[in-house]
Design a binder for these strands. Structure first.
Lengths: 223, 223
DNA sequence: TAAATAGTGTCTATCAGACAATATCGT
DNA sequence: ACGATATTGTCTGATAGACACTATTTA
């Protein structure tokens, strides 16, 4: 028998994806007290017998509850204090993950928890201090893209330059109405010498227009 | 009697200052097992009865052990796992603080712990995984200055533009030998419209040269 | 006057935003 | 041909690095 956990240590995940033309985040409905029935970020309490690290705790939460495996999980910030959880002194490490929607069957597969996609800028009330956690993760994501990092893991395996740009615009938005428009020329110029992604020679996205070159994430890319 | 802590939760602080012409960090010698006698970042185990938050734990550590109070304490990253501390599953939140040397009497005052200033890029072996913690804090500090944030809290109350520049160069260095030289003109131009600090009218630093205007941190400045 | 450092000005390469021009598809 | 979007090119203003020049002190 392992000793009782005190303080309460857990890992929570802000899992972002693109859907309905905007940035969305995965929420899970709490199945037990406290705050049963409230929506919250998916997460799990540390199990020292199973988890070598809190990142492992986060991965286990996604795997067990959502049958989901994410490539990159990044620590965002730690939230702690005596009053944030009614059970007492608690600490939660917030992680951030990005997934292309076509790799997320979570909503369909999950029988353990009720889950839904929420607009990343309009998600309503959440359990505990999770609204604050989510806002911090959302903001961290926006700041990274502002610093010219590319959220390529929000895109499908193959993608066009215009698709990257649209995704960046969605991440940069601060609300639903906001209309962030990046300049096409400037945006493409930035990647003339970058190596985050590479062209898939001979493959194009077709449509009622000139075909668009398809790209894929370069080996070694993180974030 | 409070329940026994499990996992072991603590807060550690990387306290930077300028001394001996380089960026230094404050180390404390461990006074008890495990790793007694090893040098480590100052820190303390969470005491739920005293600490409302882990930042409070960090402040308490500085206050109790070093008779020190810092204005700004910033969370850097959380380190955790089953093997980083011989006592078992542990978690430590790393904080970063900046202090002008003339406000640090720690080395003289402290009778609780033996402390010393170490070169921030050459600090030798440390207890537990503290060498890694320190490297992460050091790197985070460098990145912030690279992004044009000013580590004004490393400077004395009043300072000259050249002093800011020297401090930035020290922070940007990656090692002792490295010779980062910022351009004076470009450096000053950056702050023509900035509001991080303001001139102290009529006050100058004198020497064997043209007197230099003194500045002080503007109200509301963080970091 | 010389040495030292403060403070300012100039030139240029680079880059981002704005926007125009051209290319290549489906219909 | 036309509409739509991809891709490329041009112009311009802002900015950073390099470096030179002037200013003001002590010795």
């Amino acid at each position: 028998m392992t000793p009782k956990l005190f303080p309460l240590v857990s890992a929570d995940v802000a899992l972002f994806s693109i859907g309905d033309g905007c940035l969305q985040v995965l929420l899970a409905q709490r199945g037990r007290e406290p705050q049963k029935g409230f929506w919250a970020l998916p997460g799990s309490v540390l199990n020292p017998d199973l988890d070598h690290s809190l990142e492992a705790t986060a991965r286990r939460a996604l795997r067990e509850k959502l049958s989901l495996d994410v490539p990159h999980l990044e620590q965002v910030k730690t939230f702690d204090g005596a009053t944030r959880d009614p059970r007492g002194w608690s600490l939660s490490v917030l992680y951030c993950a990005l997934l292309p929607r076509d790799q997320v069957q979570a909503v369909a597969v999950s029988r353990v928890e009720k889950v839904r996609w929420a607009d990343a800028d309009d998600f309503g009330d959440l359990a505990f201090d999770h609204a604050q956690l989510l806002q911090v993760a959302r903001c961290a994501l926006r700041e990274r893209v502002k610093r010219h990092a590319l959220p390529l893991h929000l895109l499908p395996h193959k993608f066009t330059l215009t698709q990257i740009q649209r995704v960046c615009e969605m991440v940069l938005r601060t609300g639903r109405q906001d209309d962030v428009q990046l300049d096409k020329g400037a945006f493409r110029r930035r990647f003339a010498h970058a190596s985050d992604f590479v062209a898939v020679e001979g493959e194009f996205e077709t449509g009622a227009q000139r075909p668009a070159q398809l790209y894929r994430i370069a080996a070694g890319f993180r974030f």
